[in-house]
Simulated scan of single mutants.
Amino acid sequence: MCNTAVFYGDNLARYGFGGSHPWSTERIHAFWRRLCSDRIDNMVVEEPEIATEETVLSFHDRQYVEMVKMASRQCRSIPLDRGDTPSFRGVFEAALYVVGSTLAALDMVMAGKDRVGRKIEHAFNPIAGLHHARRDSAGGFCVFNDIGVAIMQARQKYGVKKIAYVDIDAHHGDGVFYEFDGDPLLFFADVHQHGIFPGTGFAAETGAGKAEGTKLNIPLPAGAGDSEFIGAFSKMEEFVDGCKPELIILQCGADGLAGEPITDLQYTANAHAHAANSLHRLAHRHCQGRIIALGGGGYDPSNIGRAWTEVVRAFANGPG
């Protein structure tokens, strides 16, 4: 059994775009209701934390951060990308809470305890995993790339070298892939639906220059279900095992489950349970249990609840 930090609070719920936008502020509450109903032991609830602008700048360009800050002060919505990611009053601070909570998760798994001294082995931030944001722009509902910031901070603050980033969101994690395409110590493994936004993540994309072979992209066709996912994930598990990481980051978007409004995969929550259990074992094998999960996408409330609860259960129950 492993103590697992789970971040929850109104400051994380602030990250949402209102109206009919798929990324609503209700998403975290749908997860929380399901998680509480399942009564999982060894779960430690943590309050969200806000990041400093300085830490965000370890990944993002200053000009872009200043633009988000300006848009955040406006009363009217200003697109932060080509239209998918609108601004709203307070978006800057809301995005800082996403990044800050992911960085708090990093601090806890690296220290083995939380801010009040409770033992922590793993962590989950549900409103995080904003894998489409680039250093100089937003993208696909993602304002600041908390993953990119966490990778930079793991290296700068803790001296971590080999990091395995695993992404099971239905959409390819382009904001992580292309920003670290030439980084030979960032091992990237991504299974996603072929042909949807952002239109990247082809199997032939395996890393640039000295990083050739350190990236694994597995596109699946529309309609792929659990059996196809598990077949793909066996390759990802072998890939992560071979790189012997010092830290594992899992982006566990729930938008690959059947019934999602903007994707066409047909997973059940068993896919998330399988992925989380597999990576949990590898974390204990290679990196003293240091694994962080980030919620990512998912736009059907019941799917969010089922998938993310399975991730927390896998972490809290210990490696099988």
Score class of each variant (00 low, 15 high):
85 T>P: 08
127 I>N: 04
7 F>H: 10
6 V>A: 09
250 L>I: 01
251 Q>F: 03
157 K>L: 15
120 I>S: 03
293 A>T: 00
78 I>F: 07
91 V>S: 02
93 E>S: 08
101 S>G: 02
293 A>I: 00
290 R>Q: 12
1 M>W: 10
10 D>V: 07
247 L>D: 06
209 G>A: 10
52 T>V: 03
151 I>H: 08
155 R>S: 15
17 F>K: 06
174 D>A: 08
56 V>K: 00
111 A>P: 10
200 T>N: 12
200 T>Q: 12
294 L>D: 07
162 K>Q: 10
138 A>E: 06
222 A>V: 04
22 P>I: 11
70 M>K: 11
169 D>H: 03
7 F>G: 06
286 H>M: 15
267 Y>E: 07
50 I>E: 11
101 S>W: 03
261 P>D: 11
147 I>P: 00
102 T>F: 04
251 Q>D: 15
288 Q>R: 15
206 T>V: 15
157 K>P: 12
40 I>D: 08
303 N>S: 08
23 W>Q: 06
29 H>Y: 13
66 E>C: 00
77 S>N: 08
268 T>A: 06
52 T>N: 03
124 F>P: 06
273 A>P: 04
86 P>Q: 03
86 P>V: 09
83 G>V: 13
254 A>R: 10
178 Y>T: 10
196 I>P: 01
2 C>H: 10
12 L>P: 09
138 A>D: 06
246 E>L: 14
203 A>G: 14
184 P>V: 08
83 G>C: 13
184 P>M: 07
231 G>L: 13
290 R>Y: 15
21 H>A: 10
247 L>K: 05
37 S>C: 08
170 A>P: 07
161 K>R: 14
275 A>W: 01
227 S>C: 08
107 D>P: 11
154 A>Y: 03
70 M>Y: 05
175 G>V: 04
163 I>P: 09
87 S>C: 02
171 H>T: 08
78 I>A: 04
208 A>E: 12
1 M>N: 11
312 V>H: 04
3 N>A: 12
63 Q>F: 03
243 C>K: 13
142 C>G: 09
224 A>M: 11
58 S>C: 10
112 G>W: 08
143 V>L: 09
57 L>M: 01
188 F>L: 07
9 G>Q: 05
28 I>Y: 05
236 M>I: 15
156 Q>S: 14
102 T>L: 00
278 S>M: 13
307 A>M: 00
298 G>A: 02
193 Q>P: 04
209 G>V: 03
83 G>E: 11
150 A>T: 12
278 S>D: 05
71 A>H: 06
193 Q>C: 04
268 T>S: 15
34 R>Y: 07
103 L>P: 04
243 C>P: 07
69 K>I: 01
146 D>M: 12
105 A>C: 11
18 G>R: 01
146 D>F: 01
155 R>I: 14
186 L>V: 10
11 N>H: 05
194 H>D: 15
236 M>Y: 01
201 G>A: 08
293 A>N: 02
75 C>F: 06
254 A>Y: 03
205 E>Y: 00
192 H>I: 13
142 C>T: 11
298 G>L: 02
297 G>S: 12
295 G>A: 09
72 S>R: 02
86 P>K: 09
274 H>I: 06
86 P>E: 05
200 T>I: 04
209 G>M: 06
166 V>R: 02
